[in-house]
């Protein structure tokens, strides 16, 4: 067992973990944070997307043991912070969640677009989300929700400049 101390959604956490424990099982089974989903568990589907040290990663491809000192943000932390409340409202308005399995990963990746690419085109949104699978195939509603959020935020920035 490997001792680790890290920050998860702003709270300091110390645990002993087995080296075979990936970040998503650590969050779900050891911490009870079940918002992050384990999908394919080999880095293809994106359902496990979380933030480590401010950047999105595949949680299933990160050993928990490697995260001593890291700062992890999950969908729970992101939701509570209010950072993506508008994006989540657009998901609801367009039924972009459908079965909901991919939704936490989609929101984490979409939040990355909102943060790093505020002027993203529809094509760039699709490209950035291309590593997140939705097996309901509800991609258009998801891309619509991200696009609408970007447009709304751009309009708000415009408003504030006036």
């Amino acid at each position: 067992m490997i001792p680790i101390t890290l920050t998860v959604n702003g709270e300091r956490v110390s645990r002993h973990v087995e080296p075979r424990r990936h970040l998503i099982d650590f969050l779900r089974l050891d911490l009870g944070l079940t918002g992050s989903h384990a999908g394919c568990e080999h880095g293809v589907c994106g359902a496990c997307t979380v933030r480590v040290d401010g950047e999105i990663v595949r949680g299933c491809l990160v050993p928990a043991a490697s995260l001593d000192g890291a700062e992890v943000t999950t969908i729970e932390g992101l939701s509570d912070s209010g950072e993506v409340a508008d994006l989540q409202a657009h998901f609801v308005a367009r039924n972009a969640a459908q079965c909901g399995y991919c939704t936490p990963g989609m929101i984490m990746t979409a939040a990355d677009i909102l943060r790093h690419h505020p002027d993203a085109t529809r094509a760039q949104i699709r490209e950035h989300l291309s590593g997140n699978y939705c097996r309901c195939t509800g991609y258009h509603a998801i891309v619509d929700a991200v696009e609408a959020t970007l447009a709304e935020r751009a309009a708000r920035r415009q408003e504030e400049r006036r």
Binding site: T109, H128, G131
Partner: peptide, 12 residues
């Protein structure tokens, strides 16, 4: 870089 996998993988 943009051709390599996806953003979350490029971060690791």
């Amino acid at each position: 870089v943009p051709y390599i996998a996806h953003p979350a993988i490029r971060n690791r």
